[in-house]
Amino acid sequence: MQLIQRRTIYALILIASLAWIFISADRAGTSTAGEIPAPRQGFLAPDFTLQSLEGETFTLSELRGQAVLVNLWATWCPPCRAEMPAMQKMYEEYNDQGFVILALNMTYQDTPSAVLPFKQEYELTFPILLETNGKVATQYELRSLPSSFFIDRDGIIQEVVIGGPMAEALLRTRIESILE
């Protein structure tokens, strides 16, 4: 290819690319993240209403204004068990700053009678909610236990951690981030 021909083609490519950048600019900021409920970072956390072991009703959207960790777990799952002490420690440390943990026991695939002894064994003081029909698990596209969703004060998921156990430093950094 001749020198001039080649340089003309390169220049045309760059001009066309520049035009494409301006044509495809997202002036309205049309990203729907943050508006649609989806179990994904940047999206609104799907809402749910569940009962705790003690019979108290919790609705996620009613906790707007607080930073929430939604943790999906089961008593038979070793990493779920392993991360509970660190979660309890963080709950005690950050609860007065507006941090809440909703630990959703996957009761529909767990032994319901094992949940209360588990709570007592680990001396957990945060609410343990019972997911009895798998609806919330479907909403949150549960594929692995434990699964944790760090939700900020506006109800937006800021971080999703699939698997575990979560290290204390991970919990601390993520909690401090959603409390900001």
């Binding site: 971080e159 951690v161 575990g164 979560m166 290290a167 204390e168 430093a169 991970l170 601390r172 950094t173 993520r174 401090e176």
Partner: peptide, 17 residues
Amino acid sequence: SAFAQNPQSLISFNLDL
């Protein structure tokens, strides 16, 4: 500060750290 309070997190398998 988070790691100073829990140094063993440095060798955690958490990919998010």
